[in-house]
């Protein structure tokens, strides 16, 4: 059997490259952030203590570890500004993921049902906005959503509203920006599963007495659940940590967690507190990823 053959040097190297990548660009930075989160803020360079110093020898290392503390985590738990910030992030992410599903599913379904030669064109159109920087597109939305911007002009012209409503610095503006920016991340995985859906299953359901709308709930939706989960996680996780969109479109009264980290880091210059907030965020986000991975593994075993 192939599997029992000793791997060549080249093979084992190729297998280890992704791990090396992860270690260098995820695990190591995370350990540094973790270390900073256990430090104390100080007016120094870098702006925290203790600093790891091998020159002090064994005694110095012991002093270093003794100086680490969980004070910043206690602070996060006790000050409601952090808890509220987390809650707001999760709330915004959950609600916009739901909107993304409701908007993205029909789009993905329509693309998967168009004649094959048009599908590639439609997919390219879906990802076309990525060709422009996110920052520029969000600035464009700031323009659109201004008090005398195109949206309000249109609404007034159509007599839908009498007084132009305020959009900017509201949660609505955040939802508009998030749903607009993340739509491709929802549409692509949904399209990938819906495109593989066997047409004869839908015919079989109709043949067995199932009307069209029931076929959707009983066959199409259950069979595209892997795409729904993938799309939801692909959107939910980055939206929780989103910084640019709430910072430019939302208000500053109740910040999302990304804004809070930014504030601690650049405003208060409190690197350890910012690091602790970031570590808690990572831990919160690892949970849904693990759930997803568990499901994906089960799906692989099934095939």
């Amino acid at each position: 059997m192939r599997r029992n053959q000793p791997r060549s040097l080249w093979q084992s190297l190729v297998v280890r490259i992704p791990y090396a990548w992860l270690a260098a660009l995820f695990v190591l930075p995370f350990l540094i952030v973790l270390k900073i989160s256990l430090s104390q803020s100080a007016i120094a360079r870098p702006p925290y203590t203790p600093v790891f110093d091998l020159a002090a020898g064994w005694h110095g290392i012991r002093a270093f570890f003794a100086a680490l503390s969980f004070d910043n985590y206690v602070l996060i738990g006790s000050d409601p500004i952090y808890v509220l910030s987390y809650l707001k992030s999760v709330e915004i992410a959950a609600f916009s993921t739901l909107i993304l599903l409701l908007v993205g599913y029909p789009i993905a379904y329509a693309i998967a049902r168009t004649p094959r030669r048009w599908q590639a064109v439609l997919i390219v159109l879906t990802v076309l906005p990525f060709w422009t920087s996110l920052l520029i597109r969000i600035y464009a939305w700031m323009n659109i959503l201004q008090r005398d911007g195109p949206l309000n002009q249109l609404l007034v012209a159509l007599s839908i509203v009498k007084e132009p409503p305020v959009w900017l610095s509201t949660n609505t503006a955040i939802f508009i920006g998030v749903v607009y920016s993340y739509l491709p991340f929802m549409v692509l995985p949904l399209y990938a599963t819906l495109e593989k859906l066997d047409e004869s299953l839908l015919e079989a359901a109709a043949d067995l007495g199932c009307p069209r709308w029931k076929i959707f709930w009983q066959v199409t939706l259950p069979l595209s659940s892997s795409g729904v989960i993938a799309g939801a996680l692909l959107c939910f996780i980055p939206i929780v940590g989103e910084f640019v969109i709430p910072d430019l479109l939302g208000g500053s009264r109740s910040p999302m967690i990304g804004q809070t980290i930014w504030m601690e880091f650049f405003g208060n210059k409190d690197w350890p507190a910012a690091a602790a907030v970031a570590v808690v965020l990572v831990c919160l986000l690892v949970a849904p990823i693990l759930v997803y991975q568990h499901r994906a593994m089960r799906a692989v075993e099934r095939d």
């Binding site: 066997d198 015919e203 079989a204 109709a206 043949d207 067995l208 007495g209 069979l223």
Partner: peptide, 18 residues
């Protein structure tokens, strides 16, 4: 429509719901 016909079909691919 197909779902109201008193006719059933066995598909070549079987079309079982996975």
């Amino acid at each position: 429509p197909p779902y109201r016909r008193p006719v059933n079909m066995m598909f070549q691919s079987y079309a079982l719901f996975p």
